[in-house]
């Protein structure tokens, strides 16, 4: 069936089966390879993307047809080139990644977390990211990266106060 996916502000007309999972539609029909697949049981979260600006979803546990009518944001839509998002910058600066496989999802999950809680404590971050696995970093530097990005992102608002 033909559906239209709005990804990172761009419309993609794609032909999928109802059983096509969103992650494969993004990767194979839209050519956006940032969301990865790491498990079969919705456990690892490396496929996390954001719906409607603030809802993190595991795109392996949603059918592509269900994403019609939603704004989908993937890592490719967050920032790039000279305009990295504060989260992307912070993950780099705090060494919050190693193999990079979980990184796009970890960043997207952090992005959603900060939409709901702009000033999270360390415990909030650890709880908030507990749907995303990382095998390389031991999470220490991921937590630091989210703290740095949160501070960066709050700055304009705080400056305005």
């Amino acid at each position: 069936m033909e559906i239209t996916l709005n990804v990172n502000g761009q419309e993609h007309k794609v032909d999928v089966e109802p059983r096509t999972l969103l992650v494969y539609a993004l990767r194979e029909n839209c050519g956006l390879k940032g969301a990865h697949v790491g498990c079969d049981s919705s456990s690892c979260g490396v496929c996390t993307v954001v719906l409607d600006g603030k809802i993190p979803v595991k795109s392996c546990t949603m059918f592509a047809v269900q994403a019609e009518g939603h704004e989908i944001t993937t890592i490719e839509g967050l920032g790039g080139g000279a305009n990295l998002h504060p989260l992307q910058k912070a993950f780099h600066e705090q060494h919050g990644l190693q193999c990079g496989y979980c990184t796009p999802a970890m960043i997207m999950s952090s992005y959603a977390l900060l939409q709901h809680n702009p000033d999270p404590s360390e415990d909030d971050i650890r709880r908030g990211l507990s749907g995303n696995l990382c095998r390389c970093t031991g999470y220490m530097n991921i937590v630091k990266a989210v703290q740095q990005a949160a501070a960066d992102m709050r700055q304009p608002a705080e400056a305005a106060d």
């Binding site: 990767r27 194979e28 993937t74 780099h92 990079g100 990184t103 960043i107």
Partner: peptide, 21 residues
């Protein structure tokens, strides 16, 4: 020194085997 490989990974532009078509 900050890692040079990060640039592609934080932008979702690493190339893993499943990305190859």
């Amino acid at each position: 020194i900050k890692r040079r490989e990060d640039a592609r990974f934080v932008q979702g532009r690493g190339t893993y085997v499943d990305d190859i078509e």
